[in-house]
Structures are given as structure tokens and as C-alpha cells.
């Protein structure tokens, strides 16, 4: 019986607390190769005889990618492995090198859209998923010492930040924050908008 090689180049892509296991395809001409993924947390290693738990969504899949976000759901070190299968022939398990801890996820600043709606300073933020909240900083241009912060846990479509002075320019930037790992991304580029009305009006 021909030996089926284990999948190679197994790695984790983790961004903003969404974690994907990926691997190189195993090529067997004329055959459909399927893959199965399993995971093991610290509990399984230390208290459950080093058992592994299958991820049903990635059992006998033809994809070379598996969303493991739901299973990497505790602040501990995990191991992950994948094997190939053609018919009844199974490859050895290929394992992710080392451990994966979700605290190492890479965090990106959110896409930001700042709108001046008359005198209202509004912001629209990219929804990065349930694990992410946002720290939004905003200030009137030229008054950099009076920066205000708003923590946005739920990303509704548009959020009201402030009521602006007529004709004044306001700037906004935001960062992603994940409480579960107590880390934040860098800040987004700053965006500035001007409120309606003209400051000279006040001089009349």
C-alpha cells in the first residue's frame, strides 16, 4: 500500500483573534486528498492523557485551511495537527511546530471613516469580530492636549463622538483592543474633518 506523506509546512495565521491552521496540499495524481485536523490544549496534555480533540468542521475536508478560532478559546498553549487521507489510506499526523497561544495573535488597527454631519462628529468602524473592541481618540485640531477617548465595545454602524464647534476641524484615530489578552494594536492613521459653518460668523 503506497505510503501517504503527512502534510507539510503547517502554520497558524492569526489576526485579531481569528486563528486559521494552514498547510501545503499533498499531491497524489488522480486522487482526491482529504484532511483532518485535531487540537490539544494544556488540559488535554496534563490531565487527559495527552488526548487530541477532532475539529468536525475540518474532518475529511479537501481544503488546506481550517478555522480553529472556536477551539483556541482559552488563554493556554495549544498544539494542532493535521493528516491526509485518500480512501482508507491515512498519512501520519503532521504537527504545527511548537505551541500556539492566542495571546500572540497580531492586531491591526480598524478601518475608520470619519464624517462631519453638520455639527456632529461621527465615526464608522470596521467590525473585527466579537473579541475586539476599540479605543477611539478624538480632539479639536490645535487643542492636542484635550484629547478625548471613547471605548467602543459593540460596533454599531455609525457612532456619535461629539458635537463640534462651527467651522472647527476635528481629528480622530482608533486602535483595536482585545480584553481577553489585554493587548492593543497600533493606531489607525488620523483622519480630520471640518464642522459646517464659519468661525467668522461669531465675529459679526
Amino acid at each position: 500500500e503506497a505510503l501517504l506523506p503527512a502534510p507539510q509546512n503547517i502554520s497558524i495565521l492569526s489576526t485579531n483573534m481569528k486563528h486559521f491552521l494552514t498547510w501545503n496540499p499533498v499531491i497524489i495524481h488522480g486522487e482526491t486528498v482529504r484532511y483532518s485536523v485535531e487540537f490539544q490544549g494544556e488540559y488535554e496534555r496534563d490531565y487527559a492523557n495527552e488526548s487530541w480533540i477532532p475539529i468536525s468542521e475540518c474532518s475529511l475536508t479537501t481544503a488546506t485551511l481550517c478555522n480553529v478560532t472556536e477551539d483556541i478559546s482559552a488563554p493556554v498553549a495549544y498544539r494542532l495537527c493535521v493528516r491526509a487521507q485518500v480512501g482508507a489510506t491515512r498519512s501520519p499526523w503532521g504537527a504545527l511546530q511548537g505551541f500556539f497561544n492566542r495571546a500572540t495573535t497580531s492586531l491591526t488597527p480598524p478601518l475608520l471613516k470619519v464624517v462631519a454631519d453638520g455639527y456632529h462628529l461621527l465615526v464608522e468602524l470596521e467590525d473585527l469580530g466579537p473579541a475586539c473592541q476599540f479605543h477611539v481618540l478624538y480632539w479639536q485640531k490645535g487643542q492636542d492636549s484635550k484629547v478625548q477617548q471613547k471605548v467602543m465595545k459593540e460596533v454599531s454602524s455609525v457612532a456619535h463622538l461629539d458635537t463640534m464647534e462651527a467651522g472647527a476641524e476635528y481629528c480622530v484615530k482608533a486602535q483595536t483592543h482585545v480584553e481577553a489578552i489585554n493587548r492593543s494594536s497600533s493606531f489607525s492613521p488620523t483622519q480630520c474633518v471640518r464642522a459646517q459653518g464659519d468661525t467668522s460668523m461669531w465675529l459679526v
Binding site: 488540559y43 490531565y47 487527559a48 478559546s73 482559552a74 488563554p75
Partner: peptide
């Protein structure tokens, strides 16, 4: 407790794993 709660249901087993690993932390 956790080690004696293995079931035939993959979804349940995965959630128990999540809870158990969170307990460790």
C-alpha cells in the same frame, strides 16, 4: 470532573475542552 465527561458529541467535547483549559488559567 472534566476528564470523566467525554461524550459522543464532538461539539460538546470541544466546549468542555474550552472550559477545562480556561479553568487551568
Amino acid at each position: 470532573v472534566f476528564k470523566h465527561c467525554k461524550t459522543e458529541d464532538s461539539f460538546v467535547n470541544r466546549k468542555i475542552s474550552s472550559i477545562a483549559n480556561s479553568f487551568l488559567s
